[in-house]
Structure formats: structure tokens, C-alpha cells
Design a protein around this nucleic acid. Structure first.
Lengths: 352, 352
DNA sequence: TCGTTTACCGTTAGCGTTAACGGAATAGGG
DNA sequence: CCCTATTCCGTTAACGCTAACGGTAAACGA
């Protein structure tokens, strides 16, 4: 049952013009809020537009102007609360500009058929903000070849400093979190890393090592665990850490989600936080202060990163030069209640 | 510094045609995979397109065809993890269709100047999915007047059954959660409601009352608390409940976020969950299983609701009739570890 | 008074694509 | 050999909007 609604023709600018007794161009001028229209005429047209519920065609406008007023936000997936923060920042920054936000997810990259690139590059959007995993450098290159303005968020990686990107000071954040644990008196501090292919994960691991080194502590390979940034990963690695002959007194998780995994594992083993083991996360997602105990974590200003990405993108779109291609926003340690000095409760056995 | 890039002309279908020695129409036919093109010609054009990286202008195409391939998703705010679930469902359902998702937030409705409607109206999209609060009926009406297809998610309210909407069985969910607590032996069950203007909040409150009544228990007005769906609200109301001369043995929070507020308050007072007090939430957001103890809650299939909204919208767009204007997806109680039989730990005093 | 500026508005001409139609060339049937 | 059917491709004309330009009339200055 196709939709043949010959009567349902949408209003055009010309019909409004006719009703107002002016030319289409004048209506266009009013709609574009241009100054060279007599107040009386303007008001009449505005009223007519309001009454009729007329909306101009985005397509025609886009064709004429060469711009569509749309910005692409491409993310890996929409599963993590982490991404919501970024979306929020982007949306807020875009709001006053009148540009609209188009969200799409790549759903992992095994889907080679409908590449995300095709979506962006079919000339619909004016620019793109990419929140991606690794291994996309070829696509990013071809994006550049198409001269589509874009900004990468939270990932430099192998793309190099050539591409505009916004990140956070992962290294410094990880270092200060580790230093905090050291200052509390911890000496056996475990680290659960994120996907090793991600630049941010590498930086965090490096910051952790650096802090230990600065304190003259050798990094115990047993205490440095691989991870995936996912909850199970935090759970499993914590279990493994607890099974060590000499378990850690503190765990620094590569992100909050894994820190929650630590919580679960520790609870399953009856180990209390922070009495028996301290836990630190990374990201400071919305729920970090809501879990029990409230999670001490490294705050990554995700929303600000989103906002910043927008401003960089807008600069590119209107041809202004960028101050810097790579921008890193400051992280900060948010101390809550998941850490304590070690040894406050003799052993690792707690109560159910 | 405006962007005058005269050299940066995008390729047009005509240029491809010229290079191939055919007319633009033939190229268009190839691009649209129409059968009436000689194989040799087709192949030649396809090769040329691939080599040049040509992408046809969606704007021109949209103008010609009358549709742009954009769907609006309008939400109240992007602050809650709740909304991410819906976005996820919508995105997934939209992906295979080739339609693109435009996200915008209204940021509360005190902003009367830049109404969300204006956003949508400035160049129409093919349809809209609205996740709104109350008091929007007038705008919804004007949407209908514009004949823009739309679906409302999770809110019927004063809009009446006339508008297509997707919701969840809030009443049944609240009732079964309350019944579960009753079955555990609880008799003093508190309820912290959501914004009373929201239909779903009313339904949940009603389900709660109904379950108590069915068990022959009078609703104690002290135990029914107003709330706002926000974390602080859960915290404050729990505090008030604990201060009651005869405090409840279980708390049913109107949503998960408030349930987390309960957790915080109970922890601050040293009351242990579920030993001293049981807690039940509503929504089953992503973090519900991750908090400690894992939250028993009523699962609302938010992603499915998003998916369903998309399918209803697509039906409207291509003119198929809707099976039903109002669809309610089933909620289900997810039992985790935040509930226990009352009285397992004599009094309300726990340990730090 | 006349030229000149200013304010306002209309005309023309496309933007790149495709529906509808028409025409040419080939194939097949008598 | 002609006639029709089929296959392939080109021409024309929009879709709705707006840049560029041109024109008119009022206001202004000398």
C-alpha cells in the first residue's frame, strides 16, 4: 500500500508568498531573518507562516546552500554510560548553533558492508565527531580525502597528531590516582588495564607505572592485569588478583565499569571495600557517586570533551584555523569513599 | 575568513556521465540499480564511480523524492541512563533502514523561546519519536497538524489514546514488585513516587496500592512519599522514612535512580540492605546489576520500546495502518539481592 | 530642481537528481 | 522485406529554495 497522497502536498514558500501577495523571495528573506524587509510585510508573512504551519524544505535549502545543518556523531556503541556523557556535551554545544545532531553507532567494525564511512560520506552532513576504537585509521584518512571536517574524541592512537582530536590527560590522571594510593600507604597496587590497542589505555598504564617508579617501587607483573574495559573483565581479574599468594591492598581499574566489576568480585569473596581493599576507577560516570561505597575515581570531563570537539569542528567548518590539533583536557582525582589506608582490617576476610 | 573553495566542487552525476560518455540519466539508473542498462555500460559507470569516489548528493535526491531519510528523537534531557537505553533501541531499529537518527533535547520546558517544536519544524524530518514530560499536548497537536508522523514513548498522560504511543505495563510491574515484597513477608512497604504529573508515575503508584489492597493491607499515608525520579529525592524520602516512629521494612522506589538514593541514605544511617531493609527499583538500568547489593527491580524494556516506536513510525511513514495506537510492552520483575524477608536482623541498626 | 542614496521587493537562474516520456537500435516473427 | 516487441539510452522538466542582480520608489542632499 504505497502512499499516494496527491492532496497532501506540503506547503511551499511560493504558496505563502501568493497568500501574502508578495514574491517567494520576500518570504525567503523573512524566513532567513534578513533585514531588508519592511516591518509590516515581515509581520504579515510571519503570521501567515505561523497560521499555516509552514516549514521550509530542508532538502531544497541544503541543495541551494551546500550545507545541511547536520553534524554526525559516530560512536562505537551505545552500550556504555560513558558515551552518554559525550553525547550530552555535544548536544549542548550544538544547541545554540542551530545545527542538528545525527547519532549513529558502528556496532563494532566487523560489519564491513555498511561501513560507517558510507553513512557520513554520502554528502549529508557538514562534519563529523568520531568516538572510535582502534584500527580506523584508513577510514579516517579517506574521510580527510573527502575534505569532510571531523574531530576525533578520546583517541589519538595510530592516527598520529595530524588529525584534530580531543582527549583527556590520561597519563596524569592515572599517575595521580596511583600517587594517592601510595600516599595512603599502599605498596601492592594492582592495575587492571583497558583494551591495549586503545591509546588512552596505554597512557593510563604508563601513568600507573611511572608513579610506582617515582616511589622506587618495582612493578610486580602479577599485579598488572589485562582488561577490556568491560564489567566482566574487572570481575575476573579481581578474582585472579585475590587468588595471588600475595594479593594487592589496592586495585586501580582502568575505568569505572571495571571498578564496578571489582566491587562485585570483592563482594562475592566477602572482601570489604575500602577496609580490606581500596578501589579506584577512571571516568567518573554518572553512577560513580551512587554505588556503595561511592567510588573514588579519576574524573574525565567527557561532556566538556564533547563540547570542545564541537567547537573545533565548527572552526573547521567555517575555515578558521585551529589553535591546536590535539587538545587534552585535564583529569582530576575525585576522592570518595572507596579507598583507605591498607591494613585497617588485618586480613582479606570480611563478612557476608 | 569565509570558506571559498572554488576548486572544492563536489563531483556531480553529470561529470561521471561525461567521463563515461553517457547521459546523466544513465548514471542515475546505474546508481539506483535499475535493470534497463546494458551490462557493459553499467560496469563502466560503476568502475568510474568507484575510482572517483563519487557520492551523489543526498540533498538533491531528497528534494526530488520528497523524503530526507531523517528521524527526529526528541528527549527531555540526556542526563539519565534511562534515556540511553531508548536511544540504543531506536538506533538499532533504524540502522537497517538507512534512516538517520537526529537527537535533540528540550532541556526542560522552561525554555519557551527555542521550543523543541521549532527545532523539528525548521526543515522537516520524515518523522519524530518523542520522549517527553507532561504539558506538551499543545505542541503534539501542532505536530499532528503538520502531518508529521510521530510516536510518543513512555507517556500517554493527557494526550489521550489518540496519539500513537509506546509504553510499558507500569501498573502491572509495580503490582508484581509489591506482591513480591508481600510474599517475602513485608507488611510495612513504603513507596517513593515519581513526578506525579507523569502518567507512568501514577500507574506505578496505583499498582502499588492495588497490591496492598488485594492483601487486605491499608495504605499508610506516611509510607507513600512524593518523589521526582531523581537521586536526591530517593535519599531525602528514605531519610524521612527512617525517622518515622514505625519505619518500613521495605522500600519500593519509583525508579532505579531513586533506589540508588535509598541505598545512599540507608548506608549513611548504617542500615544494611537487604538485611534490615529491602529495596526495589523500577527500570532496570544498565548499572542496576552492578551496584551492591545488586538491585532487585522491575525491568522496563526500554530498548525494545525504542525499537517498537521505530516500527510504528515506519508504518505511519509509508502509510500502513497501525495495529494499535497504544502499545504497552511487558515489564518483569528481576530478582537480585536487595530484598530479603523482614526481621532477619532484629532492628534497623547495622554497622558502619 | 535633479541626482543620489537607501529601503524594499521582484526576476532569473540554477543547485543535483530523477520521473516521465520519447526515440533509436536491435531482435524476432511473419 | 516490413512490422512489432524489446532493449537501451537521451531529453525535458521539474522538486523548493535562494544568490545575484535589477528595478522601483521614497528619502535625502545640494
Amino acid at each position: 500500500m504505497a502512499s499516494h497522497h496527491p492532496t497532501e502536498q506540503r506547503l511551499t514558500i511560493r504558496e505563502i508568498a501568493e497568500a501574502a501577495g508578495v514574491s517567494a523571495m520576500t518570504v525567503s528573506r523573512v524566513l532567513n531573518k534578513r533585514p531588508d524587509v519592511a516591518p509590516a510585510t515581515r509581520q504579515k508573512i510571519e503570521q501567515l507562516v505561523a497560521e499555516s504551519g509552514f516549514v521550509r524544505s530542508r532538502a531544497a535549502r541544503a541543495m541551494r546552500k551546500g550545507r545541511h545543518g547536520l553534524i554526525d556523531l559516530v560512536v562505537l556503541s551505545l552500550d556504555s554510560p560513558y558515551i552518554l556523557e559525550i553525547i550530552r556535551g555535544v548536544e549542548e554545544a550544538l544547541e545554540p548553533t542551530g545545527l542538528r545532531l545525527v547519532v549513529s553507532a558502528t556496532h563494532g567494525e566487523d560489519q564491513h558492508e555498511r561501513q560507517w564511512l558510507a553513512k557520513i560520506s554520502d554528502g549529508w552532513t557538514d562534519g563529523a565527531i568520531l568516538v572510535l576504537a582502534q584500527g580506523q585509521s584508513d577510514r579516517v584518512q579517506s574521510l580527510r580525502r573527502r575534505r569532510t571536517p571531523f574531530v576525533v574524541v578520546d583517541h589519538e592512537g595510530e592516527l598520529g597528531p595530524q588529525v584534530p582530536s580531543v582527549g583527556a590527560t590520561n597519563w596524569a590522571g592515572a599517575r595521580s590516582a596511583t600517587e594517592y594510593l601510595l600516599a595512603l600507604g599502599h605498596r601492592r597496587i594492582a592495575f587492571i588495564g583497558g583494551s591495549p590497542t586503545l591509546g588512552c589505555a596505554q597512557e593510563r598504564a604508563s601513568g600507573y607505572r611511572e608513579a610506582l617508579k617515582a616511589e622506587g617501587i618495582d612493578v610486580d607483573p602479577d599485579l598488572v592485569r589485562p582488561g577490556t574495559f568491560l564489567h566482566e573483565s574487572g570481575y575476573e581479574q579481581t578474582m585472579a588478583l585475590l587468588d595471588l599468594p600475595d594479593p594487592p591492598t589496592a586495585i586501580f581499574a582502568g575505568n569505572d565499569t571495571m571498578a564496578f566489576g571489582c566491587y562485585s568480585a570483592l563482594r562475592a569473596r566477602g572482601v570489604r571495600v575500602p577496609d580490606a581493599i581500596s578501589v579506584v576507577g577512571f571516568d567518573d560516570v554518572l553512577v560513580a557517586p551512587l554505588v556503595i561505597p561511592p567510588l573514588t575515581t579519576v574524573r574525565q570531563p567527557l561532556a566538556d570533551m564533547g563540547r570542545f570537539a564541537v567547537s573545533m569542528l565548527l572552526r573547521q567548518i567555517d575555515g578558521s584555523p585551529l589553535d591546536a590539533l590535539r587538545v587534552e583536557l585535564a583529569t582530576s582525582l575525585v576522592v570518595r569513599e572507596s579507598c583507605a589506608a591498607p591494613g585497617t582490617s588485618g586480613s582479606l576476610q570480611g563478612q557476608t
